[in-house]
Each structure stands twice: as C-alpha cells, then as structure tokens.
C-alpha cells in the first residue's frame, strides 16, 4: 500500500500552535499526575525462572540424584562435575560453576529421576572474594530452601503454577 500524501507535508500553522499547547499539558500530566506504569495493574505475579540451580530432595530428606552422569554429558559448556564412590548412589561431590553456565535447562530435561531443577532466585551476584564454585551443601541444603531442609518435587510444582 502507498502511504497518504498528507504525511509528506508538515502541519499548517494553526495546527502547530494547537499541538504545542497540547504537548505542554501532556508533559505536566505524564510526569506529575499519572504514574509512569500504566499497565499491567498491580498484583500480577511474574513467573521468573531459570536463574539458579537446585538439587531436589526426597520425602525423607536425602538427595534424589543417582550419579548417572547424563547431565554432565549433555551440558554444552561443561560446568558440572560429579564424583561418587559407586554407581546408583548419592554422589560424594557435585560441583557447579555459575559463571560458566548458560541457563538453558537441558540438564533438567534429560535427568531420568528429576533430581535437578532451575528456579528463580534474587541473590546470585557477588564480589570477587567469594568462591565461585558451588558444592553439594549449597545446591541442596541452603538456607532459603525450607531453612536447610531442601526442596522437594511437589513444592516445586506448586511454585510453578
């Protein structure tokens, strides 16, 4: 479609005066009267995901992971490390580097026992003094997850609704 012919010519004089006065009131109303956030209305809960890694926990309180190493093989940036005494047991050490991770959540899709998940969290940033390798105690049992007891599958599903 070809656009209107009027658009290529400037406004006539009387309309320019009218628009100048209108812009003055527009500035006043926008910055003094109306809030800067017209939509959406307050109370809408945003469902932010994929900010931090978490190891899920049984009903008894033990980790669900059985060291099958499928998440280590599929990770595109190789930020996970596992080691265990024997197979089909909970791992001895589980290292995760948050500065290397891509937050693609392929490890969550691949895990056959749904032992690993990505949740939202707000304090992931830190200074250079910190250790930037998260170990097993931090991943499974930090303070925010039920005060040190860990997060289970059912609670995760309730959070995501």
């Amino acid at each position: 479609m070809i656009l209107d012919r009027e658009i290529y010519f400037p406004f006539p004089f009387h309309k320019r005066v009218y628009l100048f006065i209108k812009k003055f009131f527009y500035i006043l109303v926008r910055f003094l009267g109306r809030p800067t956030w017209g939509r959406p209305k307050a109370g809408v809960k945003l469902n932010i995901e994929k900010q931090d890694l978490v190891l899920l926990v049984d009903e008894e309180g033990k980790l669900r992971c059985k060291t099958c190493r499928s998440c280590v093989e599929i990770c595109p940036t190789q930020c996970l490390e596992l080691s265990s005494r024997a197979e089909k047991e909970t791992p001895q050490s589980f290292n995760f580097k948050p500065l290397d991770c891509m937050y693609c959540s392929l490890c969550e899709e691949v895990c056959p026992e749904s032992a690993i998940a990505m949740i939202s969290s707000s304090n992931t940033s830190g200074s250079y003094d910190q250790t930037w390798i998260r170990d097993l105690n931090y991943l499974g049992f930090r303070e925010e997850l039920n005060e040190g007891k860990g997060l289970s599958l059912e609670e995760l599903k309730e959070l995501r609704k």
Binding site: R39, P40, L46, N47, I48, E49, K50, S120
Partner: peptide, 12 residues
C-alpha cells in the same frame, strides 16, 4: 508491555 507478555508464557 511486550516483555510482560513473554514473561507470562515462558518466564524469561
């Protein structure tokens, strides 16, 4: 507003 719509569907 467009980001708000993306957030409602997929979280990012």
């Amino acid at each position: 507003q467009v980001y708000h719509l993306y957030n409602l569907h997929s979280g990012k």
